[in-house]
């Protein structure tokens, strides 16, 4: 049995887009050659700004959207084509939860009915077993049996996200894509849901792809972290390493941009310019227009994601390969 539950090689996603009603369609590359793998029962965090392709990557992995290029294998076998019965069976083993629980729930069904739905769809157990399983699931996510009889609008935001989680766990998935699962929740409730996620992950040995723009949450929940910029992974490594010593200039700015109580604004790197538009990709390294260190080479040549140490990869011309302590200071 391989250590990785899911592996993706060279994923590409193109969307056709029109600038005007009569303009010819152009292709927008949302994901541009992403390779990643998630180890069993561990968490890979993906961070990046809007338009970086992090959510699209998650959807490609689940096969909700077909990739334009690249391959994905789950549990050592290629993922069957979306819509086929093999794919449907596989989908029981991989689930998605996303930001807005109210949109994910059906307002006209009780919570218990919705948590039971995956069991009906995937034909798991008989009526009594399903009832029993719904009970178990609600208890596992910290909801009372009477919450099961409520409708989504009767629950608070945190409780709704618990219900979504219970439903995602119904088919005993081995892989969970969490797309900004706690971003809409208040700090005190966010902490409750994150703890619940990690507890359930441990209890049921679930691997997670945790997509978020909130670096503080990602750091504390992820074993490994991939930083995305304009459809590519620009840095990948263990969560500790990435946040203690970010190597890519973009990661450095991103980590520095997080307002920390007690850290004055002056000491932070404030990036100039706007987050990039995938429809208008800069030449060379996509980050060069906002990069403090950009050189002529960065404007013309796209850096590949290269291993710097055993455990770390960076896509930047200026980060020396195979040194543990690369320095960007000399460039300034």
């Amino acid at each position: 049995m391989s250590a990785d539950i899911i592996t993706a090689q060279g994923l590409v996603k193109d969307y056709a887009s029109r600038r005007g009603m009569f303009a010819p369609p152009t292709t927008v590359r949302a994901v541009d050659g992403v390779s990643l793998s998630v180890e069993r029962a561990s968490t890979l965090g993906i961070v990046g700004e809007s338009g970086s392709g992090k959510s699209t990557t998650g959807r490609l992995l689940l096969g909700i959207e077909p990739s334009s290029k690249g391959s994905i294998s789950f549990d050592g076998r290629p993922i069957p084509a979306a819509g086929t019965s093999e794919w449907r069976r596989l989908r029981a083993r991989m689930q998605l939860i996303y930001q807005d629980p109210l949109a994910a729930l059906d307002r006209r069904l009780t919570i218990a009915d919705q948590v039971r739905e995956p069991l009906d769809v995937h034909n798991i157990g008989d009526a009594a077993e399903r009832r029993e399983r719904v009970h178990e699931l609600l208890a596992a996510v910290g909801l009372r049996p009477d919450h099961g009889r409520s409708y989504p609008h009767e629950l608070s935001g945190g409780q709704r996200q618990r219900a979504v989680l219970a439903r995602a766990l119904a088919s005993r998935p081995e892989f969970l894509v969490c797309d900004e699962p706690v971003s809409a929740l208040d700090v005190s409730i966010q902490a409750q849901v994150v703890n619940l996620l990690t507890d359930l992950q441990e209890r049921f040995s679930i691997a997670m792809l945790f997509i978020s723009h909130d670096l503080k949450v990602v750091r504390n929940i992820s074993d490994r972290v991939a930083v995305m910029y304009l459809g590519r992974i620009v840095e990948e490594g263990s969560s500790e390493d990435i946040f203690r010593e970010p190597l890519h200039p973009y990661t450095q700015a991103l980590v520095s941009s997080v307002p920390q109580p007690g850290t004055p604004l002056k000491e932070r790197i404030i990036l100039q310019g706007e987050p990039p538009n995938p429809a208008n990709r800069p030449s060379g390294c996509a980050f060069h227009p906002r990069c403090r260190f950009a050189t002529a080479r960065c404007r013309s040549e796209t850096p590949a994601l290269k291993q710097t140490t055993d455990d770390r990869s960076v896509a930047c011309h200026l980060v020396a390969v195979s040194t543990a302590q690369p320095s960007l200071e000399g460039v300034v």
Partner: peptide, 24 residues
């Protein structure tokens, strides 16, 4: 104090979150 405890940090060891139990 609870709000600060609940806030995940970018420095120090990775640690379990400290929620404020219950709801508003």
């Amino acid at each position: 104090n609870g709000l600060f405890e609940a806030l995940p940090r970018l420095d120090g060891p990775r640690r379990r979150f400290v929620p404020i139990e219950g709801t508003v």
